[in-house]
Amino acid sequence: MNAAATTHHHTSCLRCGRKLTSTKSVATGYGPTCTRKVKAAAKAEVVAQYKPHQVAKAEELIEQGGLIPLRGQIYLAVSSDGSQTYKTHRAACSCPAGIKGLHPCKHRIAAHILSLAA
């Protein structure tokens, strides 16, 4: 069974580690306070560096719980169709777009947003 094909339900916040109680928070992996902090971080620094449609895709990835922390600022990112996972950091990603390196992928931008929200 592919690990990416399974649905992840988080019992603690992926950012701060507190226990999640609401259904929406369990599904996304972030509590309401951390969700606000992540969105504020995205607007502050990231919007100036990336195109708006890239930031929107990265925010959507975070909201869907598609970035799972591994260690430090390295994350496991789930592909759009849920069939694969990639290791990502704000500086690099193992997805096809990240390997080509022409433009930052949504996984890298999402990792960047989360690193700013820490």
Rank of each mutant, 00 (worst) to 15 (best):
R71I: 08
A44H: 15
V26C: 11
G29V: 03
C34Y: 03
V78F: 05
Q49M: 08
P104C: 09
H107Q: 02
H112T: 09
Y75S: 02
G98K: 04
L14V: 01
C105H: 06
L116F: 09
T21F: 13
G101I: 09
C105V: 04
A91C: 03
V78T: 11
V46L: 15
G101C: 02
V55D: 02
A40E: 11
T7S: 12
G82V: 04
E60Y: 11
T28V: 04
S25V: 05
L67Y: 10
E45I: 07
L76E: 10
H107L: 04
S94R: 07
C13V: 06
A92H: 12
E63C: 03
A118H: 08
R90S: 10
Y75L: 02
T28Q: 15
A92D: 04
L116S: 02
L61K: 06
H8D: 10
T11R: 14
G31D: 15
A91T: 08
Q54L: 13
I99Y: 10
L70M: 10
P52R: 11
R15A: 12
A92R: 06
H89N: 08
A97E: 13
A4C: 09
I113F: 07
G31H: 11
A97N: 09
C16I: 03
A117P: 00
K100D: 11
V78R: 13
L14M: 07
A58D: 02
L61E: 03
T7I: 10
A92L: 13
K37V: 01
K19V: 09
Y75I: 00
A97T: 10
G17W: 04
V38W: 00
A40S: 13
Y86A: 00
R15I: 05
K51Y: 04
S94F: 08
M1Y: 10
L76R: 12
Q64N: 13
Q64R: 15
H107N: 02
Y75F: 15
V26Y: 02
Q49C: 05
A91E: 08
S94K: 11
C93R: 09
H9R: 15
G101S: 08
H8F: 12
Y50K: 06
I113R: 10
H103W: 12
Q54G: 02
R71W: 11
A3K: 15
S12N: 08
S79Y: 10
P32H: 10
G17M: 08
G17Q: 09
K39M: 07
K43W: 06
A77M: 03
A5R: 13
Y50V: 12
S83K: 12
Q49S: 12
P69D: 14
D81Y: 02
A92E: 05
H9D: 03
V78P: 00
S12R: 13
A117Y: 06
I109R: 03
V55I: 13
R90F: 13
K43M: 07
